[in-house]
């Protein structure tokens, strides 16, 4: 009995088991306290769709051997620029979204390439360098936001007539454009079909890529560089490819995130955004050396549902907004847990 229990714990993984149990407990408390469970579930669906692609961005980076991408803010900045450009020119609707995604993707690929070149020279230190590369870019961009030549009066400070505001509302025709597509209610849960389909599409595309020759080469380079080299694979190129994919996914993920949130948050807002994404993929069962699309999906669902449900439930029990604190503790704790395990362990 205890043995089989141990086996289950081992198969599912202690972190996931804990979180699932915690989630169930939260739902029970929520139900007892008569919280609107369907609304909570709708919210968590939206949050899964919003954050999913940025979590997915961790997968190619890990698979190619470049490790967890703590430099995600580089991609996030690319995504923000994409959004800002369409907002500046007041392009709305799906065209606006498409242009924003395109700009994000192009900038993401370009910056990902440069970042990949750097990472190839700092093997073994990717996480630390990535973190501070991200921090540096975010703080450098703070200066850019002030000086950038944006003219749209809705975006710049009223008084000085210069510099982007901290929080910019996305135009109505762009706000939640994906969330609202084919949205339908079921058991009182609103399903943001378009948003979820976009996430699903990204997952499928990455999944298919993983099965192509190039994808397999990339995964081999990550799993064992010496092995890959002996199979005629250029390991450095594959690491760059993984980094480019990761940063580009992060950039496009940010566009999706912004349209869903209806806000573009600048300045210090992107600073810590890599950590929840890293934590989510780890919660999904990935490690710094191994990650799958499935890890990203599972991790996003568990983590985001937990955060959405934890907020109102705890509020009904304790006073004050504990959700940000919970997010900090869970995501950083998860990363710590992963860091202190021996290499090679799941």
């Amino acid at each position: 009995m205890i043995d089989s229990l141990k086996r289950i714990v081992k198969a599912v993984g202690l972190p996931r088991l804990t979180i699932v149990l915690f989630l169930v407990a939260l739902l029970v408390i929520g139900y007892v306290n008569r919280l609107p469970i369907p609304m909570l579930l709708s919210n968590s669906l939206v949050r899964v769709g919003m954050n999913g692609i940025m979590v997915l961005a961790m997968v190619p980076s890990v698979q190619s051997g470049a490790g967890l991408n703590f430099g995600l803010p580089i991609g996030i900045i690319a995504g923000l620029i994409g959004m800002l450009v369409v907002m500046e020119f007041k392009i709305g609707g799906f065209l606006g979204l498409a242009i924003a995604l395109l700009i994000a993707c192009v900038l993401g690929v370009a910056s990902g390439y440069v970042y990949g070149l750097i990472l190839n020279r700092v093997r073994g230190q990717e996480m630390m360098i990535g973190t501070y590369a991200g921090f540096s870019i975010v703080s450098a961009m703070c200066m850019f936001w002030i000086l950038a030549p944006f003219k749209n009066p809705e975006m710049i400070w009223v008084i000085s007539g210069k510099g982007l505001r901290t929080t910019l509302p996305v135009s109505d025709s762009l706000t939640q454009i994906l969330d609202k597509s084919w949205e339908f209610p079921i058991f009182g849960i609103k399903v943001p079909t378009g948003l979820l389909l976009t996430f699903a599409l990204a997952c499928v595309l990455l999944g298919v890529f993983n099965q192509t020759k190039l994808g397999i080469s990339m995964r081999m380079a990550g799993a064992n560089p010496a092995f890959a080299m002996s199979c005629g694979i250029n390991v450095d190129k594959m690491r760059i490819l993984g980094t480019v994919l990761s940063i580009a996914l992060g950039a496009m993920g940010m566009v999706i995130y912004c349209q869903s949130l209806g806000l573009v948050q600048l300045y210090r807002a992107p600073l810590m955004m890599a950590f929840p994404a890293v934590a989510a993929v780890l919660i999904g069962g990935a490690s710094a050396r191994k990650a799958t699309v499935w890890n990203a999906v599972l991790g996003t669902v568990l983590f985001q549902t937990l955060l959405t449900i934890a907020l109102p439930v705890t509020r009904s029990v304790i006073e004050g907004d504990i959700s940000e604190v919970a997010k900090t503790i869970i995501s950083n704790g998860m990363i710590l847990y992963a860091l202190t395990r021996k290499e090679g362990d799941g």
Partner: peptide, 18 residues
């Protein structure tokens, strides 16, 4: 010689695919 954490079939096939 090996991808230790991969399955036997992947070890055998992946180099052949590439």
């Amino acid at each position: 010689g090996l991808l230790l954490d991969e399955s036997i079939e992947n070890n055998i096939a992946m180099p052949g695919i590439v």
